[in-house]
């Protein structure tokens, strides 16, 4: 089996995985980093979003072997120790989740979005966050939380 080297949340893991193992399943089932969620396994919901080499990607649509040597941040690596990332704080404050299952994907995706810097207005943020579904209907609170951080902080923060 191929050995894949993954740098996840600044820790290096070596994994023996078959080529058809998705990055999502590798992270969840092999490394037991279960913060990254599986909602569809088909690139249709955004729950599995992680940050890979500074870009937001869908880990269910990525094979683990494709990311040999890549630097990946999952939801477990977003906070600095005990200090939550501003987006994490904003999500709690704005009640931007109910069941919490889409939340890791929403937060990782929002960090990617802010890094991209393309979205200028609330409408654009909504549009560019629309790959992340929320069945609980926390949509408006999610966008409120992102807007607060976007308007409150400089881009360097991300």
């Amino acid at each position: 089996m191929p050995i894949v080297k993954l740098n996840i949340n600044q820790q290096t893991y070596e994994l023996d995985v078959l080529p058809w193992v998705s990055l999502l399943d590798a992270i969840r089932e092999r490394l037991l980093l279960t913060g990254t969620k599986k909602g569809c396994d088909h690139g249709q919901c955004g729950a599995c979003t992680v940050i890979c080499d500074d870009k937001r990607i869908l880990s269910c649509m990525t094979l683990a072997v494709m990311k040999n040597g890549a630097a990946i941040t999952t939801i477990e690596g977003i906070a600095e120790g005990d200090e939550l990332h501003p987006l994490q704080k904003a999500f709690i404050e704005h009640d931007a989740f109910q069941c919490g299952y889409c939340t890791p994907g929403q937060i990782c995706s929002a960090i990617g979005l802010l890094t991209e810097g393309k979205a200028k207005t609330r409408e654009e943020v909504k549009e560019l966050m629309s790959g992340n579904l929320c069945r609980c209907g926390a949509n408006a609170n999610i966008i409120d939380a992102i807007m607060e951080v976007k308007e409150g902080g400089s881009r360097e923060q991300f």
Partner: peptide
């Protein structure tokens, strides 16, 4: 439980 939900715990 907010912290647990936003940190993936």
């Amino acid at each position: 439980e907010g912290r647990l939900k936003v940190t993936g715990a």
